[in-house]
Design a protein around this nucleic acid. Structure first.
Lengths: 320, 320
DNA sequence: TTAATTTATGAAACGCATTTCATAGCAAGA
DNA sequence: TCTTGCTATGAAATGCGTTTCATAAATTAA
């Protein structure tokens, strides 16, 4: 394969001039530029991207860390990120971690080694102390409130959101309210747990672990929730479900078991995924595609860190 | 940042020896190896991956082209690919094309420019003539029958699968059978269309466009299908739906509208996604995760092209 | 003991484009 | 006419690790 040197020789100019042509630098006389372009055509020249990367120290690649690719929440977020990446001529390197810390560290190391320019972490596992060791190597963007960290972030206030949702259910007359959530750990889960604890204390109920359902990520997990509900002596009369797909699973399972919604059980989903609309699930709209877009824009901003709070909107339908 | 030269100087050896240590080459005396390792520690040495890439001409990056990331079919396929990539120390570069040809070409160009070592195209748009121009630059792997092309492929025989499914419905007494599919174009869709055409001819029915539903990709599209069914004078009594999520949407919508399943309408899904199990949908199991794994293994095999046919399995449940 | 291997080591070439720096030519302003 | 200030151009340095090749030293085989 021809390289820049061959082109230079053929066109009768220096490699510098060829490089200028490649990078649209103005200081090249028109006839020389023509000669270079023609030589490139003739040799079917392809510039070696890895040499460019080495030379420039950047790759136009942005890493994206997600626990699972096959999950509607991350799917939509990823879609937003991917669309914006496209527009800005960046490509994405996908890291599926399955929530293994070492996978996240691998991604951070790729940032350190300049194989990617920035890193978007959609769901964090590593401790802040670990993350902060890598901030010097390039922008790191989080999808959680990270205002007191040396990174950028786009997030929603889960404490407030959860509190509002609980109040809404409370106003509808519910006193025994439970919630379904993805993983036990994680900053967002902690915020929600705190909101829940504060809420039940405020209304004078007890904070029972029975009313919390973990690992509630997807449609198929809805069935397990309903199985557990059926075994309870005093089941909750309302559930906050942090995924529309899980909510849809619960609704479907309830129908099968004869649990009437919202009479016997009120369900409030999260995200406002298309499935929520079809199944008439009351939900909190989280603009995931828009969040993805913002995450990417923060990732390509090498100048400064920023923090954006995204607000959610209640979509009232028929399950509450 | 320290480079290999600094380490060499500090350890009192040549850069060659440092490189040997980095690459676990045996010909380095133990004491020198120690010295090098210590120097690296001391300087907190990080090897510049881009220099490695330039030098070696490979990146350990594999491109994956999908039309949408936010789709359960590709989500699962991607999961299989991602898991296997992890095991083999490869990373993935994601190309979301939204079925725009130029996006696919961008991916092919990254292969040409050696920014990725191989390319997996999960759903092709480009013509074979275009693809074949890039085969010289690295392995290209397709997710469709490409046995007569200069690429590798992992595929299922859609003609046979569709025929078998139609026969199955026929044996259950159905004569008016329709089908729902994603996009109109595409090699797989054509195979299915052909299978359908041949089948209806064989059983002496007419091949009506009315019985074909396009753009049937996701849960939310099920509702549209049911809307259309309700308006038909002679609706099909059975539907082959090439996505479990779409099938689930149809089932859900039918319940709402009072269409009894399978009495009024039989539904057969595709993929055997978890949602099919929960909703007791009869479906054809396509081992997507396994397919993803095979795709990746073919992608990292630089030696030779191969073709693997994957067989599907009928999972009988309650919607037929 | 000699010949043939194997082990160990480093200089230099290689992969390739970008960028800095020095220089020359030319035009506009003083 | 003499400065300034651009425009244009190329040599050389830079980014950095891998690999080839030549050579020396240490073993093993004959």
């Amino acid at each position: 394969m021809a390289n820049i040197k061959d082109i230079a020789k053929r066109a009768g100019v220096s490699v510098t001039s060829v490089s200028r042509v490649l990078n649209n630098h103005p200081y090249v006389r028109e006839d020389k530029r023509e000669a270079v372009l023609q030589a490139m055509e003739e040799f079917n020249y392809q510039r070696n991207i890895n040499a460019v990367h080495l030379s420039k120290g950047e790759t136009l690649l942005i890493g994206v860390v997600v626990p699972f690719t096959n999950h509607p929440y991350f799917g939509l977020l990823l879609e937003g990120i991917a669309n914006e990446a496209m527009k800005n001529n960046y490509k994405l390197v996908l890291f599926q971690t399955n929530y293994e810390e070492k996978r996240e560290i691998e991604a951070l190391k790729m940032l350190q080694h300049k194989q990617i320019d920035s890193l978007i972490i959609c769901s964090r596992i590593c401790a802040w102390e670990v993350i902060s060791q890598f901030t010097e190597y390039g922008p790191i963007v989080l999808c959680e409130d990270a205002r007191n960290q040396n990174v950028s972030s786009t997030f929603i206030d889960h404490y407030m959101t959860f509190t509002n949702a609980l109040e809404y259910l409370h106003n509808k007359g519910h006193r025994k309210i439970g919630y379904c959530i993805g993983r036990r750990a994680g900053a967002n889960s902690r915020q929600r747990g705190k909101a829940y604890a504060d809420f039940v204390r405020r209304i004078g109920e007890s904070n029972s672990e029975d009313y919390v359902f973990y690992e509630c990520l997807n449609f198929e997990h809805g069935e397990e929730v309903v199985q557990r509900l059926l075994k309870m002596d005093h089941p909750p009369t309302a559930l906050l479900v942090t995924s529309d797909f899980a909510a849809a699973g619960i609704v479907t399972s309830c129908r099968e078991k004869g649990i009437r919604i919202p009479v016997d059980l009120a369900i409030m989903g999260f995200d406002n995924q298309p499935i929520a609309k079809i199944m008439h699930i009351t939900t909190l709209e989280i603009p995931l595609v828009e969040m993805g877009k913002k995450l990417l824009l923060q990732a390509i901003d090498r100048e400064s860190n920023s923090h954006q709070e995204i607000s959610v909107k209640l979509i009232e339908r028929e399950t509450v």
